[in-house]
Amino acid sequence: MSEETQHLVKALRRIREKPLDSTDDLAVRRGEFVSVLNRIYGPGSPQEQQVNRIKYYRRVGSGSISMGGAVSGFAVSENFAECKKRLHGLIDGAVEELESLGLPTKPSPASSGLSVSVNQTVNLNVVIEAVKDELTGQQLKELREALSEPGTPEQKRSRVLEKAKSFGSDVASNILAGIITNPQILGSI
């Protein structure tokens, strides 16, 4: 188990061992647990959603008041014990998962496997749109096939260059012009 995983397991166990005797404790433990879950899975994970579905309620049923002011028939129900049990169960499950499987791998932010910032994503989209605007459907298909064939990045680059040359010099020039004259790019040149 990695050192990071050990620290996370230890943090979860500390949360599990803290007193959970009131609704205030419940709210604090939920917050602490969600904080650790966000470090493990990222915000909005299914695990966080499960914790957020733990809702405490206290209901008072109807009854009657006699002439002397005595109250009868009021029933109070609450789900604190159930909330506590569910929270402890989720914490125990997270500990077991980390101990047996380790930390989950986090998906990369871009589908192509590139790690890009917001500005780079916009610029990448400009390039992709310029290519799509200038190539025919058949040409795009040929480029995709050249890229999907096995090989090193250098071999793929060579195949793409050969394909681009076969489309004619006008196509490459038009793609470059489309990229450079795009308002999102033009301002940064």
Score class of each variant (00 low, 15 high):
residue 3 E to W: 09
residue 3 E to A: 13
residue 5 T to Q: 12
residue 6 Q to D: 09
residue 7 H to I: 08
residue 12 L to R: 06
residue 15 I to L: 10
residue 18 K to N: 09
residue 18 K to P: 02
residue 20 L to V: 07
residue 21 D to M: 08
residue 22 S to M: 07
residue 22 S to R: 10
residue 25 D to N: 13
residue 25 D to L: 07
residue 26 L to Y: 06
residue 27 A to M: 11
residue 29 R to N: 14
residue 29 R to L: 15
residue 31 G to E: 13
residue 31 G to W: 06
residue 32 E to T: 07
residue 34 V to I: 15
residue 34 V to N: 08
residue 35 S to R: 15
residue 36 V to R: 13
residue 38 N to L: 00
residue 39 R to P: 02
residue 39 R to S: 15
residue 41 Y to V: 11
residue 43 P to N: 13
residue 43 P to W: 12
residue 48 E to A: 14
residue 51 V to D: 00
residue 51 V to F: 00
residue 52 N to S: 05
residue 52 N to V: 02
residue 54 I to T: 07
residue 54 I to G: 05
residue 55 K to G: 01
residue 58 R to Y: 12
residue 59 R to Q: 09
residue 59 R to F: 10
residue 61 G to A: 13
residue 61 G to C: 12
residue 62 S to R: 15
residue 65 I to K: 12
residue 65 I to W: 10
residue 65 I to E: 13
residue 67 M to R: 14
residue 68 G to Q: 12
residue 69 G to K: 04
residue 71 V to L: 15
residue 72 S to Y: 14
residue 73 G to Q: 04
residue 76 V to L: 15
residue 79 N to W: 00
residue 79 N to D: 02
residue 81 A to V: 10
residue 81 A to N: 09
residue 81 A to S: 09
residue 81 A to P: 02
residue 82 E to P: 01
residue 82 E to D: 15
residue 83 C to L: 05
residue 83 C to Y: 04
residue 84 K to A: 14
residue 84 K to N: 03
residue 84 K to C: 00
residue 86 R to Q: 15
residue 86 R to M: 10
residue 86 R to L: 14
residue 87 L to V: 04
residue 88 H to E: 12
residue 89 G to Y: 10
residue 91 I to E: 09
residue 91 I to Y: 08
residue 91 I to K: 14
residue 94 A to E: 14
residue 96 E to T: 11
residue 96 E to Y: 10
residue 98 L to S: 15
residue 98 L to K: 11
residue 99 E to Y: 02
residue 99 E to W: 06
residue 101 L to P: 01
residue 103 L to E: 07
residue 106 K to E: 04
residue 107 P to Q: 08
residue 108 S to W: 04
residue 108 S to G: 02
residue 108 S to V: 00
residue 110 A to L: 11
residue 110 A to Y: 11
residue 111 S to N: 11
residue 111 S to C: 10
residue 112 S to N: 14
residue 114 L to D: 12
residue 115 S to H: 08
residue 116 V to I: 15
residue 117 S to M: 01
residue 120 Q to D: 06
residue 120 Q to P: 01
residue 124 L to R: 07
residue 124 L to W: 02
residue 127 V to D: 01
residue 127 V to G: 02
residue 128 I to N: 01
residue 131 V to G: 04
residue 131 V to A: 07
residue 134 E to K: 12
residue 135 L to M: 10
residue 135 L to C: 13
residue 136 T to D: 04
residue 136 T to S: 12
residue 138 Q to S: 06
residue 140 L to A: 08
residue 141 K to W: 03
residue 146 A to N: 11
residue 146 A to W: 03
residue 148 S to M: 04
residue 148 S to N: 03
residue 154 E to V: 02
residue 154 E to P: 02
residue 155 Q to I: 01
residue 156 K to P: 05
residue 160 V to Y: 15
residue 160 V to C: 12
residue 164 A to H: 04
residue 164 A to N: 09
residue 165 K to L: 09
residue 167 F to I: 05
residue 168 G to K: 13
residue 168 G to Y: 08
residue 170 D to L: 10
residue 170 D to R: 11
residue 170 D to E: 13
residue 171 V to F: 08
residue 172 A to C: 07
residue 176 L to N: 03
residue 177 A to H: 08
residue 177 A to E: 13
residue 177 A to P: 01
residue 178 G to K: 06
residue 181 T to E: 07
residue 181 T to V: 01
residue 181 T to I: 01
residue 181 T to L: 03
residue 184 Q to Y: 06
residue 186 L to D: 08
residue 186 L to V: 00
residue 186 L to T: 00
residue 188 S to D: 03
residue 188 S to I: 05
